[in-house]
Design a protein around this nucleic acid. Structure first.
Lengths: 192, 192
DNA sequence: GTCTATACGCCGATAGAC
DNA sequence: GTCTATCGGCGTATAGAC
């Protein structure tokens, strides 16, 4: 379901109205900073300088707005292309890199919004398209699709528990150590 | 924070009022069936046959009610005691066992309610007490506490993604296969 | 001490006037 | 297109009846 109607635009693309871009920008920032539940449409509208009803008018619902502005797009793809024997550690290191705060914020917001079925389903679909299928295609042996799903499950779990194992205050050395340990566990599913 | 006041009782223990037990029972069922967000206090009260205000009166808030009636208690402990070399697969198999639907329902409800900070923090605390510290104590080598946290992160990720890799419709054989594969990945962090 | 009735201030979402 | 007014529902608080 790429389009709900013909005149829709990517909210931050060229064709989008300034108002739409302002809403999308404010929504992304607030969703990333406070999470899905704590960021209200009224608050997003105020930050964007528009009327709350306009947000619904342009994006349909809070769920749809969230799905439209929060995502990880093609972030993983480049890191699936290197040597298959170290892709687990490279994926993990990329996800935990201190400079990728926004990627983690988006990913974390999605993982934590799993109580909303629509968000959960769209997230799984994104993971499948952008990570699971691409990774599975490079793997050999039995159950490559299942094993690739389990890799994505591990990444989801890492983000969910990130605060408990250091979080944004972790030193680069700590991040590297987590990437080494967790990456090896992930690798066990890619090249057992 | 075990007690908010001195006269509190475990909601299903002997000392609890019938009303409290009815609320706790209805809350547990609805939280497990519909998740945190979709189960409203008014609905829980109706199912328990009491006034919605009573739910707040007895349990303080929706967050506290959830934390009181949803949990996994000592479920993991027995499976941490066997041979250390296979604890990864045994933990996973236990979590995915077809007869442990309620455990999965509770675990899943907590994982999906992570958007609420209070729930998330209490969950991490439970995991630490009931899983991470006990597992870490049996492990050897460097970073045992960190590695045990990463094991818990893996289990969280598996539950979060459970629907995507089969879910409750999975055959016993499929569950066993997931337990074998994912258990091996978990084991990599316990006995590398 | 339990419980009921009522109300407050949010929320997401809608209908219709400008 | 944009704003005003409003809806039903939510979590929560409190006053007071039994």
């Amino acid at each position: 379901m790429e389009h709900a109607s013909d005149d829709e635009q990517a909210p931050e693309a060229e064709g989008a109205t300034p108002t739409q871009r302002a809403i999308a920008l404010a929504a992304r920032e607030l969703f990333e900073a406070k999470g899905y539940g704590a960021a209200s449409i009224r608050e997003i509208a105020k930050a964007a300088g528009v009327d709350p009803a306009l947000v619904i008018r342009h994006f349909g619902s809070k769920d749809e707005l969230f799905a439209r502005v929060i995502g990880f797009d093609e972030h993983f793809a480049p890191h699936l292309d290197g040597p298959l024997g170290t892709v687990g550690e490279r994926l993990t290191a990329y996800l935990l890199d201190a400079s990728h705060t926004q990627l983690r914020a988006s990913f974390s917001a999605i993982v934590r919004a799993a109580d909303h079925e629509r968000v959960r389903v769209e997230f799984q679909d994104s993971l499948r398209r952008l990570l699971v299928e691409k990774l599975s295609a490079r793997m050999s042996g039995d159950d490559t699709l299942l094993r690739a799903w389990l890799v994505s499950a591990q990444l989801v779990g890492l983000i969910h528990s990130w605060d408990a194992v250091g979080g944004e205050s972790a030193t680069p050395e700590a991040r590297a150590q987590v990437a080494r340990l967790y990456g090896a566990a992930i690798q066990k599913l890619i090249t057992p």
